[in-house]
């Protein structure tokens, strides 16, 4: 142990004699700048470019490289006819229900235009059911919504049909296809 102490003391003293504080600072500075430069090398860009067939996009979903917007904001493009609470604010996401709820298979469908690529997408508004009303992020938009006497296209209806529970919690907006390439 004593031998190791002596060796460490000797190493530290010789290091102190040979190096100035400035040279240490310069070294750290070089390391910082050099480190920051590494991710800028073309290797990183090469990785960001997806290979053909590499892209994991759910059926009909827009190209993931187009600007997506904020799925927690009622103004998000695919919520153009939502009337309810956004699943994305309730522990789920824009196309997945919060834990503990069940997504109703029976839904109503409409189209929304994605401003990022100008396409009209077919959106399925599935209600998430089986837990009490979420209460966060109420969203009321009515593009294409019809009065309740035209049931299949009305967003005023509790669409918790075909699920175990009929209690409404929140709503998702699932893209199921492209209606028109340019709206």
């Amino acid at each position: 142990m004593a031998r190791m102490d002596r060796w460490m003391t000797g190493f530290a003293r010789s290091l102190a004699r040979r190096t100035s504080r400035r040279s240490v600072l310069a070294g750290i500075g070089t390391a910082l700048v050099g480190g920051a430069a590494v991710p800028l090398l073309p290797v990183a860009r090469g990785r960001a470019e997806p290979a053909p067939g590499d892209r994991v996009t759910p059926s009909g979903e827009p190209d993931p490289t187009t600007p997506a917007g904020d799925p927690q904001d009622c103004g998000y493009w695919r919520y153009c006819a939502v009337d309810g609470f956004l699943s994305s604010c309730c522990g789920g996401s824009h196309n997945a229900c919060p834990p503990g709820t069940q997504m109703s298979p029976i839904t109503w469908l409409g189209t929304c235009r994605n401003p990022a690529d100008g396409k009209e997408y077919v959106i399925s508004y599935n209600d998430c059911c089986g837990k009490d009303v979420c209460g966060s992020c109420i969203c009321r938009r009515h593009e294409g919504d019809k009065p309740v006497y035209y049931t299949p296209k009305s967003n005023d209806i509790d669409w918790c049909m075909g699920t175990r529970e009929i209690i409404y919690n929140s709503t998702v907006a699932v893209v199921v296809g492209v209606a028109r390439e340019k709206g």
Binding site: P105, I106, L109, G110, S124, M161, V176, A179
Partner: peptide, 21 residues
């Protein structure tokens, strides 16, 4: 697309619907 917009909501993507309804 018309199937998606006018039918699929209740008859489901594979047309199987909901038994009894």
């Amino acid at each position: 697309v018309n199937y998606l917009l006018q039918c699929q909501g209740c008859h489901l993507p594979d047309g199987s619907g909901k038994s009894g309804a």
